[in-house]
Nucleic acid binder design. Structure first.
Length: 739
DNA sequence: CTTAGTCTAGTTTTT
DNA sequence: CTAGACTAAG
């Protein structure tokens, strides 16, 4: 059996625990994989082992992940081990797996297979519409809050009836009522929200054992990544798929469970052994990623969680340097010091930009860092944040496509109706809506009827014109490749013309984005043409347009972009899961920021914040820098901060550059960190800067002082550097040599 | 009906 | 501070 060189290669270099996780192929298996313990390695090697050593057909294996990035990475790594055969393993996110199943099977639930997937904005629009139908004031019943409530119900696997049954007060009753209407509106629009993708699949399997049996037979081996982040619906889905053969391998780390707020249920991993009798358990506790100091620091933080299975990670790497900690006056200075430190490491250690990542708790915190990076021309990429497919113009274009594919898509119709503006206003729309509801027809249908009777001549003509446009485009483009469809739609609808007529910089950038969308669509079309020829292409009877729309609905950011080339990465701590960098800055370590104020209410969410902190810290391989600012601008106003309680949880001997002032802490006053700072020395001992002085800066080299502002340690100098031109530096931190 | 301008309120993390 | 809601004028 081991004669096969491929087989030997698959086990080579694995430690005994990893090997056990790979070789234990039959029956349920829980792999508790601590940070940096080679989790992905185990998953990919396990897949290779199943195929290479056990002779399992690649298409008999299902590997589910949470993010597209994780799926892509796994696919790539399996391909490296196996070659092209790997392409037949189904590696995908929960959501795209469900879409795949539903596209083939959802008619068993009496729903259309050409459903559209509603995004955040669509869904919010549906909630607002549902509120209108209930005559509830959106000012009293916050649509976003309701949307969140519905989401929570769905995460828990409760439908509107179940929600209504549980309602104990008027508010809950009303919310459940809105939920019911919301769901009805989705169904009328032949639309599914994100959670429906999972829920409908589970319901399908609940109700149709024969359908379930088919998928169980197809996927004889099921692997689940990041199991700690699964919610109850995902849990049921996995159970369904694995219940016949029980060849289920789940991999996760309870310490990295950071999506509780989104319905992730940590019980799924904690109770695995109870749920699956005779489950094997493998613990991966050797960390190959981080230095001892980083691992110990992160471990010390997460050890403060009370609700936790104890676990001791062992660093296989040496001690390394200590964790760096610094305090900044405000978020600007924090950013300055992060960037200065980054540039310094680049210069003196020969690091590339790609070595660095900056993590923050909330997206809004990226701004000052970005500004500082821009100032020094440091290339960077913000992961997450404002997403390409969320831009208004991109959504407009996609709404057009959606409407062509599915004329019942009410949100797409509303979007498109006045993009560009065509004189069909609120009052007309309201009357059309009323008519649609009364006569039980789609919006598009109702528009036709309204134009025929009831509308003013002018409005009727405009509506007819619009309907003709939609029908013409639909007829012509339904089967077209997406790039062609987008181009024609933008042209014929007058959208592009309208933008170009504006001639503002914003409009220009919109046109630019649309061009990018067009390029993306062309890429997709090209890739898809190839794929559809293959035997296992996902195509089936679906049109290229439909496939394209699925893709954009499920892909959040342009994955290709972030990995590309040599850039500093900026992202939230949540987005950092599954990523690793040699040098990591974790900024904004203040109470109320991280841990976030919204989560300080109950212990459970504080513990989740702590795990999030653990995740952030353990992303670092060699160097970890934690920073906090005494003062921070939030939404325009100034707020004052104290260091995050998490900082205090790191043993001081692991930290460099700062030490907890015990007296101050003990006295119960606000926490303070005092630190000795070499940079202060130069500025502190009476050195006065003056115009015309020659200076040497550690990063910019030599230059001449051309301006002096302020006084004392906060003095700022404008310096014309010989190499890089004029820059403003803070005397206190610039570490200048004079003379 | 549209648009530009004012106001306000709401701020976590996202497949 | 900013996106979205609202208002008043064209």
């Amino acid at each position: 059996m081991r004669a096969n060189p491929l087989v030997d290669g698959v086990l080579e270099g694995l430690n005994p625990e990893q090997r056990a996780a790979v070789e234990t192929t039959e029956g349920p298996l829980l792999v508790l994989a601590g940070a940096g313990s080679g989790k992905t390695r185990v998953l990919t090697h396990r897949i290779a082992w199943l195929i290479g050593a056990c002779g399992i057909a690649p298409e008999g294996i299902l590997a589910v992940t949470f993010t597209n990035k994780a799926a892509g990475e796994m696919k790539e790594r399996v391909a490296k081990l196996l070659g092209p055969e790997a392409g037949d393993v189904w590696v995908a996110t929960f959501h795209s797996t469900c879409v795949r199943i539903l596209r083939r099977e959802i008619h068993h639930l009496g729903r259309s297979r050409s459903f559209v997937i509603y995004d955040e904005a669509d869904v919010l629009g549906v909630v607002k519409e549902a509120l209108r139908r209930h005559s509830l004031d959106p000012k009293v019943h916050d649509p976003r809050r309701l949307r969140w409530r519905i989401d929570q119900w769905k995460n828990a696997g409760l439908d509107a009836d179940a929600a209504a049954e549980r309602a104990r007060d008027l508010d809950a009753e009303q919310a459940a009522g809105v939920y019911a209407t919301y769901q009805r509106l989705l169904e009328e629009a032949e639309a599914l929200d994100f959670n429906d993708l999972l829920l409908q699949t589970v319901e399908l399997f609940d109700r149709q054992p024969d359908v379930l049996a088919r998928w169980q037979a197809r996927w004889q081996y099921v692997l689940v990544d990041e199991y700690q982040d699964t919610n109850r619906v995902q849990y049921r889905l996995v159970n369904h798929l694995a219940s016949a053969h029980r060849n289920l391998c789940v991999v996760g780390d309870p310490d990295q469970s950071v999506y509780g707020w989104r319905g992730a249920d940590i019980r799924n991993i904690l109770d695995f052994e109870r749920d699956f009798e005779n489950a094997g358990v493998v613990r991966l506790e050797r960390n190959y990623r981080s230095t001892q100091s980083i691992l110990a620091g992160a471990g010390a933080v997460v050890a403060h969680n009370r609700d936790r299975k104890d676990k001791q990670m062992v660093a296989e790497r040496g001690g390394g340097e200590r964790i760096r900690l610094f305090e900044a006056r405000d978020e600007r200075e924090e950013a300055q010091r992060v960037v200065a430190s980054l540039l310094e490491a680049r210069r003196s250690e020969g690091r590339s930009h790609g070595h660095f990542a900056v993590f923050y708790r909330t997206n809004a915190q990226s701004r000052p860092i970005e500004e500082e990076l821009l100032k020094y021309d440091v290339p960077y990429a913000v992961v997450g944040g404002v997403r390409f497919y969320d831009r208004a113009e991109v959504k407009d274009a996609l709404a057009w496509l959606r409407l062509l594919v599915n004329p019942k898509d009410a949100m797409a119709l509303r979007r498109v109706l006045n993009a560009p503006p065509r004189g069909i206003g609120k009052t007309s729309l309201a009357r059309v809506e009323e008519l649609a509801e009364r006569e039980g027809v789609s919006l598009l249908e109702a528009m036709g009827r309204f134009a025929a009777a009831g509308a003013q001549a002018r409005t009727a003509a405009r509506i007819r014109e619009f309907l003709e446009l939609v029908e013409g485009l639909a007829r012509e483009l339904r089967e077209s490749p997406p790039d062609e469809a987008i181009a024609k739609v933008l042209e014929r609808s007058g959208y592009l013309r309208h933008l170009e007529r504006e001639a503002t910089p914003e409009a220009e950038s919109r046109v630019e984005n649309l061009r990018e969308l067009l390029l993306g669509a062309a890429d997709f079309a090209a890739a898809n043409r190839v794929q559809q020829e293959g035997p296992s292409g996902p195509g089936g009877e679906r049109t290229p347009l439909e496939l394209f729309l699925d893709q954009v609905a499920l892909v959040t950011d342009l994955d290709a972009w972030e990995n590309r080339s040599d850039r500093v990465s900026l992202m939230t701590a949540h987005s950092a899961t599954g990523r690793v960098f040699p040098v990591v800055f974790l900024v904004g370590m203040e109470e109320g920021v991280f841990p976030h104020a919204a989560s300080s209410r109950d212990d459970r969410s504080v513990e989740e914040e702590r795990r999030l902190c653990y995740v952030g810290m353990t992303r670092a391989m060699e160097r970890l820098t934690l920073t906090w600012a005494r003062e921070r601008r939030r939404y325009g106003s100034r707020t004052f901060g104290v260091p995050s309680s998490f900082l205090r949880e790191i043993p001081p001997e692991l930290v460099e550059g700062a030490s907890l002032d015990e007296d101050v802490a003990a006295s119960g006053r606000s926490l303070d960190y005092s630190y000795s700072q070499d940079a202060d020395a130069g500025a502190g001992d009476g050195m006065a800067a003056a115009r015309g002085m020659r200076v040497r800066h550690p990063i910019f080299g030599t230059g001449t002082v051309v301006g002096v502002r302020g006084s004392g340690v906060d003095q700022k100098l404008d310096i014309r550097f010989d190499r890089v031109g004029v820059k403003t530096v803070v005397l206190r931190y610039a570490n200048l040599e004079f003379g």
